[in-house]
């Protein structure tokens, strides 16, 4: 019962993943001169923005003690809808805003299934994941939507730069800062943690559990839609199969960051580190020339080691 020891283990939660990240970056840097270039680091960060935004949203949901499997499908559906709006003449800016709102709405549906429908989060979002993917196929006829024209706004979101820094990276960092403040400095953040830590106690303390969870899902859906827009901009077309399996990378990043899967404990900073670890692995192993089959095995092992080292004794 030593408070210093408690504090240390408290911070070790972040540092464990951070140390793993630093070791990985050093290790791959030694192996590959290509990896250790400034440009590669920038493109690595840009690549991580897709998974990063989804994982940030996922962090809220997991902190409340739930899970959101539907993010990949939300991404696909919003992207396809956005693309078809653009091709049918809706101004690009408006189509993008609508896509974000639709993402929020799709998250809301998952949230309501969990809170009002009293379905288990896993089942509820398994349902929405399946249905949203099906809707994506229906809307797109199973074919990619391209010919999105030459809109400057659309290009800017995925391909633009400010002072040489890619816009997706800037979006990622800005969202991180906002969410960091929300989780650590606001009453809503406290409610999120309380809901996941002990919902009975939180309810008796006057926390609206349902509302808190629902908002977490809305955040998650919105973030999935936002990363969909970045993808749309980069690919200049909307594939109906987009985002398959993205929920797993996001959950892995959250777990790597030391967030408890049963909720109540964890940090958005940890998620950020988790996202970077996955990005470094993807990028670095490619550059070093590890076959993609081995990449998955290595990724799994890294997650295992990170989670084991986080475990409280």
């Amino acid at each position: 019962m030593n408070i210093n020891k408690n504090k240390l283990s408290y911070y070790a939660q972040d540092f464990g993943a951070l140390i793993a990240l630093i070791l990985l970056v050093f290790g791959i840097s030694i192996l590959s001169p290509e990896f250790r270039t400034f440009n590669n680091f920038l493109s690595l960060l840009r690549q991580s923005s897709i998974n990063g935004l989804i994982a940030f949203g996922m962090t809220f949901v997991i902190l409340t003690g739930a899970i959101d499997l539907s993010v990949g499908s939300v991404l696909a559906l919003t992207t396809v809808l956005c693309a078809s709006m653009i091709t049918s003449g809706v101004p690009v800016g408006i189509a993008m805003i609508l896509a974000l709102l639709i993402g929020a709405g799709l998250g809301l549906v998952s949230g309501l299934l969990v809170t009002k429908g009293r379905l288990q989060p896993f089942i509820a979002t398994l349902i929405t994941m399946t249905v949203y993917r099906g809707l994506t196929m229906i809307f797109s006829n199973g074919k990619p939507i391209s010919k999105l024209g030459n809109s400057a706004i659309l290009k800017f979101v995925g391909k633009g730069n400010i002072f040489g820094i890619p816009i997706p990276v800037i979006i990622l960092v800005v969202i991180f800062i906002i969410f960091f403040i929300v989780l650590n400095k606001t009453t809503f953040g406290r409610r999120v943690y309380a809901t996941g830590s002990n919902w009975k106690s939180a309810r008796l303390a006057g926390v609206n559990i349902r509302q808190t969870k629902t908002i977490a899902y809305i955040i998650s859906g919105t973030m999935a839609a936002l990363s969909g827009l970045i993808l749309l901009s980069r690919l200049n077309s909307a594939q109906p199969t987009l985002g398959m399996g993205y929920e797993l990378d996001a959950i892995a990043a959250v777990a790597l960051g030391g967030t408890s899967m049963s909720g109540g404990r964890g940090k958005i900073f940890g998620t950020f580190i988790g996202v970077l670890i996955i990005a470094v692995l993807n990028n670095g192993l490619n550059i070093v020339g590890v076959s993609s089959y081995y990449q998955d095995v290595i990724k799994g092992l890294v997650i295992l080691i990170a989670v084991l080292s986080d475990r409280k004794r």
Binding site: T186, T187, R190, S197, N198, K200, S201, L204, G264, R265
Partner: peptide, 24 residues
């Protein structure tokens, strides 16, 4: 233990939870 407190959380987080309105 199961309804009164978030056992894994600090004294601070527990007490603040019912007083969120007055500290924000």
């Amino acid at each position: 233990k199961s309804e009164g407190l978030m056992l894994e959380e600090s004294i601070q987080k527990n007490i603040t939870l019912t007083n969120l309105g007055s500290v924000s």
